[in-house]
Design a protein around this nucleic acid. Structure first.
Lengths: 221, 221
DNA sequence: CGCGGCATTGACTCATTTCAAAGGTGGTGG
DNA sequence: CCACCACCTTTGAAATGAGTCAATGCCGCG
């Protein structure tokens, strides 16, 4: 069940390779950790489910989203290898985490044990999640759609620095739209504008080369 | 130096009263805690400063914001008594926290000591901060300005549940605008619309009574 | 009394949404 | 092997909501 999204997409690192790059965040990994893999569309945890685990993504891509009353989907968090999620105040998850590509893998840790051991290793993972959300708030806080898309590309490039070649967009235009809270058409048009003004080059529908970082940063269109 | 913002605004709880309602988040409070008070406009910590402390707001109101390249201000987080802030990945703060009213008070904790003691008590404070940011992303993710303002009012009511009477807006229209990432005029018009449709009543410029929670929730305008 | 900050209202412009349709791509099944 | 199908992407035209510019009112305070 090969997924076309994964063909041009280099997140297929073996767990062993990842072990050196991704820190084990939550205490003694051997005792607590539990590995799981998912296909595209698979749900790691669902909104309303009892929050039994804290997760760390080790391979693939996932999005954490909520469905609003009007049926629209809102993507709260884009998860790349190394990112932790599943932190929640109450007893249930408040959002659904869904896998974007095949060969998505997580390590999960029982929450009760983490709570029991004092949540030592969570600290770093939590402030990283905080930084991620703050960065994202600033991305969607830009005024025009070109600025939003440009800032998103820069953020993506920074977070996927393991990829030296062209920036491979891990998610579809629809996902980008729901993440930036603009419409799909606007995303497509914004990419077209950035391309036209020479800030980026679209080497493929899912491959972007950033030519002018400063233009994206400031967002002058 | 009385501030008119504080006259209609009931955050003047004495530290003793707060002690029962606001948990001490960060270990042995007597040894680590350090109390500080600020006037309106006072800066608790500034973007770029060395991140020496973690803070908990114990009285007043504060906003955490960044100034973008184009000069616009973006409010990342609205801080009410009990909220913790100052978590950062690097060695410096990445945003500025400014007090909105006089008699704003914080308890601050040296970061090095927290790191040394394993960040035990931070866990709860951090996931609360995460929930705050997630909620806010969902608020600004609403489509129309009326929905955003309505969702903001509901969020505010929930977080200020200690106030049984009318909802006292802790921040100005300008602050609301920079928080919801819409213009001041739009905030004013949205409040007017919500008033006209009977969802809220404006008992004063800074006092709102929510009449129809469901209308604000769904955001039908 | 006048000043400064806050709030509201109006008119105009324009970017984005919405609605609609067509092109592209890969996967599946005949 | 090919054709169909589902999904993703792009483009166009029209409608509208929000931004911008501008002016006025409000209130507390020096």
């Amino acid at each position: 069940m090969a997924d076309r999204l994964t063909t041009d997409f280099q997140f297929h690192l073996a767990p062993r390779e990842l072990a050196s790059t991704i820190p084990e965040p939550l205490g003694q990994p051997e005792r607590l950790a539990e590995a799981r893999t998912y296909y595209r569309g698979g749900v790691i945890c669902r909104q309303g489910d009892a929050a039994r685990y804290i997760f760390q993504l080790v391979a693939g891509v996932a999005i954490r989203h909520v469905i609003r009353a009007d049926g629209r989907r809102q993507i709260i968090d884009l998860l790349l290898p190394g990112d932790c999620f599943g932190f929640t105040i109450g007893k249930v998850y408040r959002s659904t985490t869904e896998c974007i590509c095949d060969t998505t893998a997580v390590t999960r840790y029982r929450r009760e044990r983490i709570d029991a051991t004092g949540a030592h290793g969570c600290h770093q993972a939590e402030i990283e999640a905080l930084a991620r959300l703050e960065d994202h708030i600033q991305v969607i806080g830009r005024t025009t759609s070109c600025e939003k898309v440009g800032a998103f590309l820069l953020e993506l490039e920074r977070r996927m620095s393991n990829q030296p070649q062209d920036l491979a967009l891990p998610i579809s235009r629809y996902d980008i739209a729901d993440h930036l809270m603009i419409s799909v058409e606007t995303v497509s048009r914004a990419l077209g504008n950035l391309k036209q003004q020479g800030s980026i080059r679209l080497t493929g529908p899912r491959a972007v080369k950033i030519l002018d970082h400063d233009a994206l940063e400031v967002g002058r269109s």
